[in-house]
């Protein structure tokens, strides 16, 4: 999408006559955000009561059109644990 037009047709024609710079006034404010949150979680039982568990999680966030500052980030998470059921 492009810039919009202000309602008064002579707006931009008139503004250069002053010292004010209105050239960036009519702009578009965009959001372009992508997010992925994916993972795998596995559990293996050695016995009826004892098991091991491992998990991986990947979180991705893309701020495609940063405004004040960039929120793009990645988070790689790993989990490993030993468990006992009683």
């Amino acid at each position: 999408m492009g810039n919009f037009d202000l309602s008064r047709p002579d707006f931009t024609e008139r503004s250069p006559n002053s010292w004010w710079d209105f050239s960036r006034t009519p702009e578009w404010s965009n959001l372009d955000l992508d997010g992925i949150d994916t993972g795998i979680d596995l559990k293996y039982r050695f016995t009826r009561n004892v098991f091991a568990r491992g998990a991986y999680r990947y979180v991705k966030y893309d701020d495609g059109d940063p405004y004040l500052y960039d929120l793009t980030g990645r988070n790689n998470l790993l989990y490993f644990s030993l468990g006992y059921l009683f």
């Binding site: 965009n30 372009d32 997010g35």
Partner: peptide, 14 residues
């Protein structure tokens, strides 16, 4: 295994 995807697009004058 899980996969979650989000996408947001917005165009607004300012």
């Amino acid at each position: 295994v899980s996969y979650n995807y989000q996408r947001l697009e917005n165009s607004a004058p300012g």
